[in-house]
């Protein structure tokens, strides 16, 4: 039987500690049986009936649980079998898909559609690249905007905080 330590956890410690007492706790069945027997005023046979009843209830509970477990295992087995079949079907479909893209099937389909491979009679000859990519980059083009316009733009930018004057003048 389980033993329980009574009430010191979390409690404020007393100045004078009382000597600890251990009490043997009674189980639920014992307590319930005693209370029921007291209230029903059962004799010895009554006690036996209650005991047998409790056992029968426990047995039924066990049987129900076992049946549920058995049913679950059947379900698992069925689902595993189903999964295996689905995987097999998936493999089969995968093979069909891969086969459909196989060169043999592609050619067969093409032939059935009246297509055939034609060997090109001529090819576009390559030509030398006209641009020499190794030449160093030249200087960037000179800014052709008049000086006065640049000065105005600088002033306007400084005052107005805008920076699109130059762009606007080009349109």
């Amino acid at each position: 039987m389980a033993r329980r330590r009574l009430g010191t956890a979390g409690a404020t410690p007393h100045v004078t500690a009382q000597p600890r007492r251990r009490r043997r706790t009674r189980g639920f069945v014992q307590v319930a049986g005693a209370v029921a027997a007291e209230r029903l005023r059962l004799n010895m046979f009554g006690h036996a009936y209650v005991g047998v009843g409790a056992v029968v209830i426990a047995l039924l509970f066990y049987l129900a649980l076992a049946a549920q477990i058995t049913q679950a295992s059947y379900d698992m087995s069925r689902l595993q079998d189903q999964q295996r079949q689905l995987i097999a079907e998936q493999d089969q479909l995968r093979y069909q898909e891969v086969t459909m893209h196989a060169p043999a099937m592609v050619q067969q389909q093409a032939a059935q559609s009246g297509m055939q491979r034609v060997v090109p009679s001529s090819y576009v000859a390559g030509s030398a690249v006209a641009i020499d990519l190794t030449t160093p980059l030249g200087a960037s083009p000179a800014d052709a905007t008049p000086l006065w316009m640049r000065a105005v733009a600088t002033v306007v930018n400084a005052v107005g905080g805008t920076r699109d004057v130059m762009a606007a003048t080009k349109h």
């Binding site: 491979r117 060997v119 090109p120 090819y123 576009v124 000859a125 390559g126 030509s127 030398a128």
Partner: peptide, 15 residues
């Protein structure tokens, strides 16, 4: 080789 030329888009070297 003709199949390779077509499938791999091989072009002749420039001359």
């Amino acid at each position: 080789a003709q199949s390779l030329v077509v499938d791999w888009h091989i072009t002749p070297d420039p001359h």
